[in-house]
Simulated assay, not measured.
Amino acid sequence: MEAVAWRAPIAPIAQTPARGEARDLSATVRCEAAAAPSAQAGGARCLHDHELHLIGAAPARLRIGSGADEETHSFAPGTVVLLGPRLPRSLAFEHRAQPGGCSSSGSGGLVLRFSDEPLKRGMALFPELADAGPLLARARLGVQFVGLEAGTLARLRRIETLQGLARFSEFTALLHELAQWGDYRVLSGVALAGEGLGEDTQALRIHKALDHIRENYAEALSLAEVGALVGMRENAFSRSFRRATGQTFTDFVIGLRVAKACRLLASTRQHVSSICYEVGFNNISNFNRHFRRIEGMTPGEFRARRSPSAG
């Protein structure tokens, strides 16, 4: 099969609108199939909409950034990626052509496009929408969601079949699920130049730090080293981290290690001391103390309660 490049169009292609299409173009959330390639050419392109991509039946590749800062990412079918406004992306996704043209709606790619400003105005009117604020801040660097549940993917596809208030209601429910999903990775390590993001810039750096902590929780981690990794002084990083997570750096790392230990205790028969060192604690007494403080019981008691034979 021949590889073809698909590039996100800047504006709708001029043609006779199908029934309901004009309404869709003026809607807050617009849906497009991502299977058909675009005839547009060009290098890095900065769009003014958010784009939520569901990769179709074929693998895809994204080039994000430009020049020396360009990064390339490969995505498996079923991957969901959120790209924020004004994020430079060159050639966007590349799909392999499917036999017979576009894929069916069950396996083809899908793109939801939504503008930044309507959501910001909505947050001022409806405080509940502000829960999506951190998610949209992360989108400025691109976000790949890892291991989304089937129900969330089904909701994303269902949006394509809806119109009007029903579509917007389903979209806000999807935003909530994505905002609460903790397993993700930020795609670009470079903040946008000249954007003047202010507090958003700090938020992006904190999310980058969180990615690093999640990937290296079992290693020795220090506040100063992680702060330096994201380009922040120790005191500023400490304040920003606590404001973003509600926890100190140390408490967050310990809580993450205990959470990982809980999964191993519930799903394996590894010895408690083995789990202790695997998740990053340097001695068993320290592990037991923090585990009891957070879970209210010892690791052994936790395992006993989670055992299928526990009654």
Score class of each variant (00 low, 15 high):
residue 60 A to D: 13
residue 84 G to H: 06
residue 64 I to F: 07
residue 66 S to T: 15
residue 54 L to W: 08
residue 64 I to G: 04
residue 86 R to E: 13
residue 79 T to K: 03
residue 83 L to W: 03
residue 57 A to E: 15
residue 70 E to S: 02
residue 74 S to V: 10
residue 76 A to H: 09
residue 64 I to Q: 04
residue 75 F to Q: 11
residue 58 A to I: 11
residue 88 P to A: 07
residue 77 P to K: 05
residue 90 S to H: 07
residue 89 R to Q: 12
residue 89 R to I: 12
residue 89 R to D: 07
residue 74 S to P: 05
residue 82 L to Q: 06
residue 76 A to F: 03
residue 64 I to M: 05
residue 73 H to E: 01
residue 67 G to L: 05
residue 55 I to F: 08
residue 63 R to M: 07
residue 69 D to I: 04
residue 80 V to W: 05
residue 59 P to T: 13
residue 60 A to N: 11
residue 86 R to I: 02
residue 66 S to R: 15
residue 74 S to R: 09
residue 73 H to C: 02
residue 91 L to K: 05
residue 61 R to N: 04
residue 57 A to H: 07
residue 75 F to L: 15
residue 70 E to V: 11
residue 58 A to G: 09
residue 83 L to S: 01
residue 84 G to L: 01
residue 92 A to I: 06
residue 73 H to G: 00
residue 65 G to S: 09
residue 55 I to S: 03
residue 77 P to N: 02
residue 58 A to Q: 14
residue 56 G to H: 09
residue 76 A to T: 14
residue 64 I to H: 04
residue 75 F to H: 13
residue 82 L to V: 09
residue 80 V to D: 06
residue 89 R to F: 05
residue 85 P to Q: 00
residue 92 A to C: 11
residue 91 L to V: 12
residue 61 R to T: 14
residue 85 P to G: 02
residue 68 A to L: 06
residue 78 G to E: 11
residue 65 G to A: 06
residue 77 P to D: 06
residue 66 S to K: 06
residue 61 R to E: 12
residue 61 R to A: 11
residue 90 S to W: 03
residue 89 R to G: 09
residue 79 T to W: 00
residue 82 L to Y: 10
residue 76 A to R: 12
residue 64 I to K: 04
residue 89 R to L: 11
residue 62 L to W: 14
residue 88 P to I: 06
residue 84 G to M: 00
residue 67 G to R: 06
residue 77 P to R: 00
residue 70 E to I: 05
residue 54 L to C: 01
residue 59 P to W: 04
residue 68 A to K: 12
residue 65 G to N: 08
residue 62 L to Y: 13
residue 90 S to C: 08
residue 82 L to D: 07
residue 91 L to I: 02
residue 65 G to L: 03
residue 77 P to H: 00
residue 68 A to H: 12
residue 69 D to F: 13
residue 92 A to T: 13
residue 55 I to C: 01
residue 54 L to R: 02
residue 84 G to F: 04
residue 69 D to L: 11
residue 61 R to Q: 14
residue 91 L to S: 14
residue 68 A to S: 15
residue 91 L to H: 14
residue 80 V to E: 01
residue 74 S to I: 06
residue 75 F to E: 15
residue 61 R to L: 09
residue 84 G to R: 00
residue 58 A to L: 12
residue 57 A to C: 13
residue 72 T to V: 13
residue 67 G to Q: 05
residue 70 E to D: 01
residue 62 L to P: 02
residue 80 V to A: 03
residue 54 L to Q: 03
residue 63 R to I: 11
residue 68 A to Q: 15
residue 73 H to W: 08
residue 90 S to E: 13
residue 68 A to N: 03
residue 72 T to N: 04
residue 91 L to Q: 14
residue 70 E to P: 01
residue 59 P to H: 06
residue 79 T to V: 00
residue 88 P to S: 12
residue 72 T to R: 10
residue 82 L to M: 09
residue 77 P to I: 07
residue 77 P to E: 05
residue 73 H to R: 04
residue 81 V to T: 07
residue 78 G to S: 10
residue 89 R to Y: 07
residue 81 V to H: 03
residue 88 P to R: 07
residue 57 A to V: 15
residue 75 F to Y: 15
residue 81 V to S: 00
residue 83 L to C: 05
residue 92 A to M: 08
residue 61 R to W: 07
